[in-house]
């Protein structure tokens, strides 16, 4: 955790560090994101982008109605997104609630999906409103059931009321539990932080506290992964690398449903953070419906024709 030498771990030093960050001009950030949205990605680069996007998906189900059956079919889909085409890569991970981790892990292992990690949302997802004790236990449970990625939420209440040390300590406590057993993704829930200044501040706070990934949203709050928010987070990981020589990943989640949306995200990654971030180790997309649209567009590229939705599986 060499990033920690940027601050001494105290709230004062954290505050001081965050105050040195330059502001974000919202209009300027929106304009830049909109301009990059006009990039026209065709033919070979589109094919590359579609496969890359598939391999970056954290295929997600986070419903109260999730069952073992639902989780199993999600896992099958994660491993073989298109049962008729073995050239389609598997997704980056499956993302489920804590109590579904064991089922997901077991099923993936049984069908040959050992290389696909299971990510668990933790720390009283999505609101984060529970005692520290419960949040820690939540994380421990998920890891003991086989989760190798933890998607935790930050305490937005504490952040917005200025208790930055509180937020920081909580991330560090979760990170300690993850240690080398699980990758830690820290969900900022940018839809509740509202301003881009807050997004930048929270990004740095999470990175300093030991996040391996910073993630936009839970998917339960709108707006979620808007282009300006992802842009600011990509700027943050790019600049943090300059400071610490550590590359932190970024995961937009929520509202990315179409191939076009996904490709726009990849354009942002390439042009803001740089090509080094264009791999599933450093960029993930939290989504569910997106996968089928990517598959349909992939078929279109190879056959020249659009298929109906019945040519991709509903799982």
């Amino acid at each position: 955790m060499s990033a920690l030498n940027l601050i001494d771990g105290s709230e004062t030093s954290l505050r001081r560090f965050l105050q040195t960050l330059p502001g974000v001009d919202q209009i300027g950030a929106q304009e830049r994101a909109a301009m990059l949205g006009t990039r026209s990605i065709k033919t070979t680069s589109k094919k590359w982008a579609i496969d890359m996007a598939i391999s970056m998906i954290d295929l997600t189900t986070l419903e109260g109605a999730d069952t073992a059956g639902k989780i199993r079919s999600l896992c099958s889909k994660a491993l073989r997104p298109d049962p008729q085409d073995a050239s389609v890569p598997h997704v980056g991970a499956v993302c489920v609630y804590n109590d579904m981790v064991g089922i997901a892990r077991k099923h993936l292992d049984s069908i040959g999906g050992q290389s696909i990690p299971v990510a668990a949302v933790a720390t009283a997802f999505p609101s984060g409103r529970a005692s520290r004790k419960v949040k820690l236990q939540d994380t421990k449970d998920a890891i003991s059931l086989g989760a190798t990625e933890i998607d935790m939420v930050i305490d937005r209440g504490a952040f917005l009321s200025g208790q930055l040390g509180e937020v920081f300590d909580e991330i560090r406590a979760i990170k300690e539990i993850c240690s080398d057993k699980a990758h830690l993704k820290v969900i900022l829930e940018t839809g509740e932080l509202v301003t881009l200044d807050n997004v930048r501040k929270a990004s740095y706070l999470a990175m300093l506290a030991g996040a391996d990934f910073i993630k936009t949203s839970t998917g339960k709050v709108t707006p979620a992964a808007t282009a300006p928010v992802v842009l600011v987070m990509l700027e943050a990981v790019r600049d943090f690398f300059e400071l610490s020589q550590i590359r932190i990943g970024v995961k937009p989640a929520g509202g990315i449903r179409t191939t076009k949306d996904a490709i726009k995200q990849l354009v942002l990654v390439k042009e803001i953070a740089g090509a080094e971030w264009l791999n599933p180790e450093l960029f993930r997309i939290g989504a569910s419906a997106l996968l089928n649209d990517l598959l349909l567009q992939r078929m279109k590229l190879s056959t020249g024709r659009y298929s109906s939705a019945n040519y991709v599986t509903v799982d």
Partner: peptide, 11 residues
Amino acid sequence: EDAPIDQAVEG
């Protein structure tokens, strides 16, 4: 010195 640096670069 207090400019929003990334947007200033764009500008």
